[in-house]
Simulated scan of single mutants.
Amino acid sequence: MDVLEEFLDDCDRKAQQDKNKLVLVQRSFSTEIIAKVEKVQMLNEDIGKLLARAEVLGSNGILDQSQRVLEEVDRLTQLKKESE
């Protein structure tokens, strides 16, 4: 009977260790996901601001600068796709 109790205790201990490891892994994934979501949100904001700037520049006839801003928008859009 003692052998069986030791075996059960050992199984319980191992199961608890595995549960603790799982919690740590889930937390690290959650932190990683939150960071990625925040990065995508920042990129969206930056893209929106740059698009507004490009529009103002274009409407004022400053087409060269407007084109450079749009190129930056393209770069950030690609970065956003990679982050998603």
Rank of each mutant, 00 (worst) to 15 (best):
M1Y: 04
M1L: 04
M1N: 05
V3A: 11
V3P: 03
V3W: 07
L4I: 13
L8C: 01
L8I: 03
L8K: 12
D9M: 08
D9T: 08
D9P: 01
D10V: 05
D10M: 12
D12K: 13
R13Y: 05
K14Y: 08
A15S: 07
A15F: 14
Q16V: 08
Q16G: 02
Q16W: 14
Q17V: 07
K19I: 08
K19S: 09
N20L: 13
K21F: 14
L22V: 02
L22E: 04
V23S: 10
V23P: 02
L24W: 10
Q26G: 00
Q26I: 11
Q26V: 11
Q26M: 07
R27C: 00
F29K: 13
T31N: 12
T31Y: 07
E32G: 11
E32L: 15
I33Y: 14
I33N: 00
I34P: 02
I34E: 11
A35Y: 06
A35V: 10
K36D: 00
K36H: 09
V37D: 00
V37M: 13
E38A: 01
E38V: 04
K39W: 03
V40S: 14
Q41E: 13
Q41H: 07
M42R: 13
L43R: 07
E45Q: 11
E45Y: 15
E45T: 14
D46A: 04
I47N: 04
I47F: 04
K49E: 10
L50Y: 03
L50K: 03
L50C: 05
L51Y: 08
L51S: 09
A52N: 15
A52D: 11
A52G: 09
R53W: 12
E55I: 05
E55N: 11
E55C: 08
L57Y: 02
G58E: 01
G58P: 05
G58Q: 01
G58A: 08
S59R: 04
N60V: 04
N60R: 15
N60Y: 13
G61N: 05
I62M: 05
I62K: 12
I62R: 07
S66G: 09
Q67T: 10
R68M: 12
V69H: 06
V69C: 04
L70N: 09
L70C: 03
E72V: 04
V73Q: 06
V73P: 01
V73S: 07
V73W: 11
D74C: 05
R75C: 02
L76S: 07
L76Y: 00
T77V: 01
T77G: 00
Q78C: 02
L79C: 01
L79K: 15
K80R: 15
K80L: 09
K81D: 14
K81V: 00
E82G: 08
E82S: 11
S83D: 01
E84Y: 14
